[in-house]
Simulated scan of single mutants.
Amino acid sequence: MTSTLETTPETDSAERGGIDVTIVDDPDRLVVLDGVHNFRDLGGYAMGDGRTIGWGRLYRADGLHRLSDDDLDLLDAIGIRTVIDLRTAAEIDQYGTFPFERHPVAFHSLSIIDATWHDAHVPTFDESEQGEVDFLTWAYRDMLAVGGARFAQAIRQLAVPAAVPAVFHCAAGKDRTGVLAALVLGGLGVDRDVIVADYGLTRAGMERMRTWVESNHPEMAARMNETPSFMLAAHPQAMANTLDELVSEHGSIRNYLATIGVGEAILDALADALTD
């Protein structure tokens, strides 16, 4: 597998609170593809039971409808068995899905939100770094309130026997995907700061996507240029706020998951699947 990972300021140890999260920067984490720019392996992270998530078991990604033929060959080599699409029905109708008719997988469409931010009423936030944090914190809180049961369904699907290797994705692999990744990792007992740092890698993914669309997809580039900057941000502090709020209210991410129907048995089954 050909992989590379860009080193960016948001992934330095100082911003991560000084803890050792070197594993986040593993050069094999990013799977380099032609049309998909934020396809990342969630392997290598230590779980709460002392085991480590295996490499090549679970991936997070952006829009898989953009996969090229060469990309599909690579996913075939990886052995992807399950694809979970977190986008809305309108997004799927407009852009299409993972080409499962050419690469058979267990495909699940689980729309986390009913409408994207472009089509829904969103409060106004400052076009500043603090505005980015405030918007994303608000958005992820709203996403959990609206889509908690759908996040739970996605986790249950990942825990189904023989579901992995699996990938879950949305449009940019940033928000819906980012929250689901945080819930999965948090439920498995991965350190909070590691989860936040993993989320922060999406900043580089967004830059890769912007570079690609400017050269290959002018209509998408125009939409990105018209989008408020806070909607395109991936600020780690927003994910830290989200996790801290859940822990403050429920005691742990695992306890929160229990309230939405993801119990100990499901998380234990998922942990076993990701380490076998």
Rank of each mutant, 00 (worst) to 15 (best):
R102M: 04
H118A: 09
H65G: 07
G44A: 11
W138Q: 01
I92A: 03
D119A: 15
D71G: 07
D93W: 07
V21Y: 13
W138M: 05
Y59F: 15
G44I: 11
R102F: 01
Q130I: 14
E127S: 13
R40Q: 03
V105G: 02
M47D: 09
D126Y: 07
T97K: 09
S68A: 02
R81Y: 00
I53D: 06
F98N: 10
H108D: 04
M47Q: 14
H118S: 03
T116W: 05
R40E: 03
S111P: 15
M143I: 09
F100P: 02
I53F: 12
H65E: 12
V36N: 02
N38K: 03
T82V: 01
A61I: 04
S109E: 13
G35I: 05
S68P: 12
H121K: 07
G79F: 07
L74A: 12
T137L: 13
D49H: 05
Y140R: 06
F107T: 00
P99T: 00
D142P: 01
I53V: 15
F100N: 08
H121F: 13
V105C: 04
I92M: 01
Y59D: 00
I53A: 07
D85E: 09
P123S: 00
S111W: 09
H121A: 11
G131P: 12
T88R: 07
D114C: 06
R60S: 08
G147E: 04
P27H: 04
L136F: 06
D71R: 00
R102W: 02
M143K: 04
I113R: 11
R57Y: 02
H121R: 03
V105P: 08
